[in-house]
């Protein structure tokens, strides 16, 4: 049986698979809108930031620092550092999108988020030959984007009505979403090593300025995963060789 892949089918599957992540991002969008306007951004600027920047954590940091009167140059550099992880995502997705034209790559690049990356990389890595996996990517991106705009506006309106909304602790939604993505991936020893080292380094390096600790921890985790993978592979190779050398004398006789 062969499955018939269609552009529309891929697009809507992308939307469907992104739904849990959209759910996780929703309270975050409300909180951003509310925090931004209570912190002193105009409603238009809060919404404009969601439309043009579209990067949750750096929007929070940007709005927060702006409210504290930090200079715009510093905020922009901080945004750059906080978003550096997207370069890793981009590099990870790049091999799968290299045949696409810039008409596709420009919007897909603009819409790249933690959530869409997490969903889409799984689709790209599936072995089937669907020629329309980028439509899945598009569906995920468009859903995340429209949802973020909608809830930002809700948050802006709510923030103008009620004070204290920001203290509800809805920021936990992001944490719980990431936990739900990462934990099921921890099925091999290299992945476990990666997560443990990234966790420890992230906590130790938390005091570094401009969220640099995040990059340091991520790189340490990647290095740990690769190291354990290499050691295990060598070990496996050596065992295989040992096995072979034990077996080999009998091989000619068996033939």
């Amino acid at each position: 049986m062969t499955t018939q892949y269609t552009r529309q089918g891929e697009f809507w599957t992308g939307v469907k698979d992104t739904f849990p992540l959209v759910l996780g991002a929703t309270p975050f969008g409300i909180i951003f809108g509310a925090v931004a306007v209570t912190g002193g951004l105009s409603p238009a600027a809060a919404i404009g930031m969601s439309v043009l920047v579209f990067a949750g954590s750096s929007q929070f940091i940007g709005a927060g620092l702006f409210a504290q009167g930090v200079g715009i140059g510093v905020i922009i550099i901080t945004t750059f550092v906080v978003n550096l992880r997207h370069a890793l995502y981009g590099a990870s997705l790049a091999p799968y999108v290299k045949r696409l034209s810039h008409r596709w790559l420009l919007p897909l690049g603009f819409w790249l988020t933690d959530e869409t990356y997490a969903v889409v990389i799984r689709r790209y890595q599936q072995p089937d030959e669907s020629p329309y996996k980028h439509w899945y990517h598009l569906g995920s991106s468009v859903f995340m984007y429209t949802n973020w705009q909608f809830w930002t506006i809700v948050g802006v309106v709510a923030g103008q009505q009620f004070t204290g909304l920001a203290k509800l602790g809805l920021d936990f939604a992001l944490v719980v979403t990431f936990i739900g993505i990462v934990v099921p991936l921890l099925v091999t020893r290299p992945m476990l090593a990666c997560t443990v080292v990234a966790a420890v380094v992230a906590v130790l390096a938390n005091g570094l300025p401009n969220k640099l600790g995040l990059m340091v921890a991520a790189l340490a985790g990647i290095a740990a995963g690769m190291l354990v993978e290499t050691v295990l592979n060598r070990h496996a190779a050596r065992n295989a060789k040992l096995f072979e050398s034990r077996q080999s004398p009998s091989f000619p006789a068996n033939r």
């Binding site: 954590s57 990870s92 933690d114 992001l174 944490v175 990431f178 990462v182 290299p190 991520a218 995963g225």
Partner: peptide, 18 residues
């Protein structure tokens, strides 16, 4: 090979300190 560890490394580094 390194890129396969990106999601786990980055998301862990955001989540655990939080």
């Amino acid at each position: 090979r390194a890129l396969r560890y990106v999601p786990v490394a980055v998301l862990t580094a955001i989540t655990v300190p939080a």
